[in-house]
Every structure is written in C-alpha cells, then in structure tokens.
Measured scan of single mutants.
Amino acid sequence: MAAGGDHGSPDSYRSPLASRYASPEMCFVFSDRYKFRTWRQLWLWLAEAEQTLGLPITDEQIQEMKSNLENIDFKMAAEEEKRLRHDVMAHVHTFGHCCPKAAGIIHLGATSCYVGDNTDLIILRNALDLLLPKLARVISRLADFAKERASLPTLGFTHFQPAQLTTVGKRCCLWIQDLCMDLQNLKRVRDDLRFRGVKGTTGTQASFLQLFEGDDHKVEQLDKMVTEKAGFKRAFIITGQTYTRKVDIEVLSVLASLGASVHKICTDIRLLANLKEMEEPFEKQQIGSSAMPYKRNPMRSERCCSLARHLMTLVMDPLQTASVQWFERTLDDSANRRICLAEAFLTADTILNTLQNISEGLVVYPKVIERRIRQELPFMATENIIMAMVKAGGSRQDCHEKIRVLSQQAASVVKQEGGDNDLIERIQVDAYFSPIHSQLDHLLDPSSFTGRASQQVQRFLEEEVYPLLKPYESVMKVKAELCL
C-alpha cells in the first residue's frame, strides 16, 4: 500500500493539533497551500530580480507567473513527485505547466533550498508574528487579574506546605514575570531571523556568478533584492546548502521555554482548584465526569500541561538535527523538520489560546482563602504575639514557653481530632496574655502579614508589564474561544 493518505478522510490519521486544537490561522501558515504558494512567490521574486539585473526574462513571463501564483494543481504535483521522487522539481514542473512561456526560467540558477529553506524562514517569521500578540493578550488578562487582587491576602506555599502570606495578585505576578520573559525572547528570536537568500547549491553562489558572467556586484544585488522582497532586513552571508540548523534550535528553545512557563502556571491553577481557592472557567453544560456528576475538573489547565510537556520535548529534535548536518548538509534534517517545526508552533498556539481562555474567566473564592488563612495564621502570628507581650512588660522566655504549650495543644486538636485551630481562643482565655487581649485582632490582621506584596504588584505592572504590552494595544480586544 502506498504511503500517505487522504487526510480529510475519517479513515486516515490526522494530527489532533490540526484537527482538534490549533487555530485556523496557525494551521494555514503550515498548510501545503501556504507552503507551495510561497515557493511560487519566491520563484517570481527571483525572476523579477534577475530581470532587473539584466537576464533575458520578459515582462510577459513575469506576468504569467504572477497570474498563476494561486493556480496550484495539487493532484498534478503529487503525481509528479511520485514520478520524480523530488518535491521541488515536482512543483517546478507543475508551475511550468500553467506558465508555459515562463517554464524555462522558473528556478533559474537556484537549488531546492532556495524555495525550501527560504519558505521555512518566512513561515517561522509569520508563525512567530501570530504567537506574539496571543502571548501579549494572556499577559494582559493576567495583569488585569493581578491588579484587581493585588491586596487580597492568601496563604503562600513553599514545598506545598503553608508559608508566609502573600497576595493573590502577587502570586499571579510570578506567572506574568515568566511570560514577559517569554514574550521578550519570542520577539528577540523573531527579529534575529535572517533570510537564507540566493546562495546556490553549497552556499557559494557559483551558479549565479556564472549567470551574471562573473559580476560579483550583481550577485550581491540579486541576494539583497530577493531578501528585501521577502520582507527581511538581512540575509546570511555564510550558508551551506541550507541555512544553519542552529536557527531551528533557537526558535524551538524559546517555544519550549514558553511551554515550561505555561505548565507551571496551569499546575498552580490545578492545585488551587483542589484547594477550592480558584477555578478555571466551567461552562453551564460542561460535564466533569461521566460517573461523578459533582466533579469540576480543571480540564483546560490539564490540557495545557499535557501539550506543554510535548512542546518542551520537541527542542531535542533540532538539537540532534543540527549535530548531524555533515559538511554542507545531509538530508537527516528533512523529514524531522517537516514534523517538529509545525508541531512546535501548533502546540504553542494551542496552549496560548487555551491559557487566554482560562485567564479571561478565572474565578476566585475569597471566603475559602480566608478560612485557610484562619487555619494557619495563628501559628504564624506567634512571633508577633511574643513581641507584643514583651512590649507590655512580659518575659520573652516565659511567653515563648506559654505559646509553645498552647500551640501544641491547638495542633493536637487540628491533627488528632480534625478540629479547627483554636490557638487564639486559648490565648484569649489565658490570664497571662490579658495585657494584649485587646491587640489580638490587630495582630491577626492578614494584611499585616503580606509585606509589600501589593506595592510590588503595582510597581511591576507599571514599570515592566504595561510598557512591554504597549506595541500590542491594537490587538488586545480579541477574545479566545474554545470549541473543545
């Protein structure tokens, strides 16, 4: 049975990233139509530049190519590739079939990587351009969430054990800070992308030097003109047959890092959902379990974690691919890159769409948070109580021993009897502590235990987050809708 299948058929496997999760716009960027249309555009740009620099290419040939950029006979191309065992030459023939007058000058002087690699770089750039505003929107939604809850005390956790208090907004800023680093890295790697350009079979530009009869300047002009037509500021000066596969490492490393950030955020949300302090959106008709109707599973956060793990592992592909590119190139890269580049971007696209949807509907339960604080705060307040007693004339050592005994009794009630923490009640009825009984409410005010959390939130948002989001103001209103 021949390899390949009808990918629109229910009898043929289709990647869930495309069929179930990723956005239509990201799927289109990695589609065959987008790819092969870009090949034709690159052939047109090459012909236009070659004509401008004096090669015998007519206006009629150029116009014929322009008129057929979208006229792609995919069936013919597939048949040609089956016959020739070469995808680029299959599309040269297919393009030439609908451009008979231009057929002889299509791909003039070029090698397969002229269309293959340059198209990949265009796709990487455009895919990054799709991700950047999506990530900015996630940051914006979380920034709104953090600002609104900047002063809401909550129990902090280290080692997932109760620690000092923080605020809900401050905790959210930990998430935002990681995503801001990801946004900066995505922008950097996007701006650092260079075009492969017009380089020939081993990167020496020998074929173009021959076409222009040894004119170095025209060869350099050709490279520059096509690079500018493709919208790049610069091209690699040095290439082998391909652009260095280190570029793929750079791009997928940034995406993998984004995956790590999203995994951490969504894990926190899942843990908070278990504590009943916070939940992701839950639709009115949504079913959490087929057997347990009360369940409210954090399905979206779980999906993000599941896909983020996949995204983090994909960076190993370009690392290994770059390491086995012998001399000017081997074909070890080809099949692998067809999979890992598309999957990385479709996965990143999915987790950003999902995280935006989550961040637009996060639900906080202040009463649950308050109750958990009441359970733990008495123990945390013991040092403040000791200091207040010393100020009232008591002995630190005597007070410490009193607190120690009462704390152990209260802990026994919590752990052995399943009761509430009654340390404060014990202190309130103990005559030894009568000098500070009137101060206990103040000493137990949760806001006095959150330090500068709310001020940190305000400063972080104003100095770091809002300036970073400013270039994306025009796209901030787009909502994230999930079908599944």
Rank of each mutant, 00 (worst) to 15 (best):
H7D: 09
G8D: 15
S9E: 14
S23R: 08
L42I: 10
E48S: 06
A49L: 01
N68G: 10
N71G: 10
D73A: 07
D73E: 09
E79R: 15
K82Y: 09
F95Y: 11
A103Y: 02
H107N: 06
C113W: 02
C113A: 11
L121Y: 01
I122S: 02
I122M: 07
N126S: 13
A127W: 06
K134A: 11
R137I: 15
V138D: 09
R141N: 10
S151L: 09
T154E: 05
T158G: 00
F160R: 02
P162I: 07
Q164N: 08
T166Q: 11
V168K: 01
C172W: 02
L174A: 14
L174I: 13
D178Y: 07
N185S: 14
L186E: 03
L186T: 11
R190G: 10
D191S: 11
R194A: 07
T202P: 00
T202K: 04
S207E: 01
L222Q: 08
K224D: 14
T227Y: 10
A230G: 03
K246P: 02
D248K: 04
V251A: 14
S253L: 10
A256S: 13
A256C: 06
L258C: 09
S261A: 11
C266T: 08
C266G: 12
C266S: 10
C266V: 09
D268T: 07
R270I: 02
R270T: 01
L275W: 13
L275H: 13
E280P: 00
Q286N: 06
A291H: 03
M299N: 08
M299C: 07
E302A: 05
R309G: 03
L314D: 05
M316K: 06
V324A: 11
T330R: 05
L331Y: 02
D332Y: 00
I339S: 12
F345G: 06
A348Q: 04
L352A: 10
L352Y: 07
T354F: 06
T354V: 15
I358Q: 01
I358F: 09
S359I: 08
E360M: 12
G361T: 11
V363Q: 03
V363L: 14
Y365I: 04
I373C: 06
M380K: 05
A381R: 04
M387V: 11
S395L: 05
D398Q: 13
I403V: 11
V405W: 15
S412H: 15
V413E: 12
E417S: 08
G419Q: 15
D430E: 12
A431S: 15
F433K: 03
H437E: 06
L443E: 03
Q458A: 12
R459M: 12
F460E: 05
E462R: 12
E463L: 10
E473P: 15
V478A: 15
L484F: 15
